[in-house]
Amino acid sequence: DETGKFLVLALYDYQEKSPREVTMKKGDILTLLNSTNKDWWKVEVNGRQGFVPAAYVKFL
């Protein structure tokens, strides 16, 4: 149950560059965990948590 969690859509592919980031593919649906930083949002994708560039995702 994803109640209270926001979902975001990956607009572009992103390859993680550090262990704190996660890789996503364009079209992936991600669970948004934290968006307090304007540049990097914490998400969960494929069972992994990490950061992606905020400009690469949008709210569903």
Score class of each variant (00 low, 15 high):
5 K>N: 11
33 L>T: 05
42 K>D: 04
52 V>K: 00
32 L>N: 01
51 F>Q: 04
50 G>Q: 01
60 L>V: 11
2 E>M: 12
52 V>E: 00
49 Q>L: 08
54 A>P: 04
15 Q>N: 12
58 K>V: 15
11 L>D: 03
20 R>T: 14
47 G>K: 06
26 K>T: 07
27 G>L: 02
12 Y>T: 09
27 G>P: 00
60 L>H: 09
35 S>C: 10
5 K>C: 08
57 V>I: 09
11 L>G: 04
31 T>Y: 11
26 K>P: 03
15 Q>C: 08
57 V>G: 01
12 Y>P: 00
12 Y>V: 12
39 D>L: 12
58 K>S: 14
57 V>E: 00
56 Y>Q: 06
7 L>I: 11
43 V>H: 00
28 D>I: 03
59 F>W: 10
28 D>C: 05
37 N>A: 09
53 P>T: 01
22 V>S: 02
2 E>I: 14
8 V>L: 15
21 E>C: 06
41 W>M: 05
28 D>V: 04
8 V>C: 10
14 Y>V: 01
44 E>H: 05
1 D>Q: 12
38 K>C: 08
36 T>Q: 12
35 S>D: 13
1 D>N: 14
19 P>G: 09
38 K>S: 12
31 T>E: 10
42 K>I: 15
4 G>M: 11
52 V>C: 04
17 K>W: 03
20 R>S: 15
48 R>F: 06
60 L>M: 13
14 Y>T: 01
25 K>P: 00
1 D>V: 15
35 S>G: 12
22 V>Y: 03
3 T>R: 04
56 Y>D: 03
44 E>N: 06
29 I>R: 07
6 F>N: 13
54 A>F: 02
14 Y>E: 01
46 N>C: 08
5 K>T: 13
30 L>W: 01
33 L>P: 00
22 V>T: 05
45 V>S: 12
26 K>G: 05
25 K>L: 09
18 S>R: 10
45 V>Y: 11
51 F>N: 03
15 Q>V: 14
2 E>H: 13
47 G>Y: 05
29 I>Q: 06
52 V>P: 00
13 D>S: 08
59 F>P: 13
44 E>S: 10
21 E>S: 06
35 S>V: 09
8 V>H: 04
58 K>F: 10
55 A>G: 12
24 M>I: 15
31 T>W: 11
16 E>N: 07
30 L>T: 01
19 P>H: 10
14 Y>M: 01
22 V>D: 00
9 L>G: 03
25 K>V: 10
46 N>Y: 08
10 A>N: 01
57 V>P: 00
43 V>K: 00
19 P>E: 14
20 R>M: 12
48 R>A: 07
42 K>E: 15
26 K>S: 07
42 K>P: 01
12 Y>R: 13
4 G>Y: 08
26 K>V: 08
52 V>H: 00
28 D>A: 07
20 R>Q: 15
5 K>Y: 11
43 V>Y: 00
60 L>S: 06
1 D>Y: 07
38 K>Q: 11
12 Y>G: 06
3 T>P: 12
22 V>I: 15
1 D>M: 13
8 V>N: 01
50 G>H: 02
47 G>A: 05
20 R>I: 14
15 Q>Y: 15
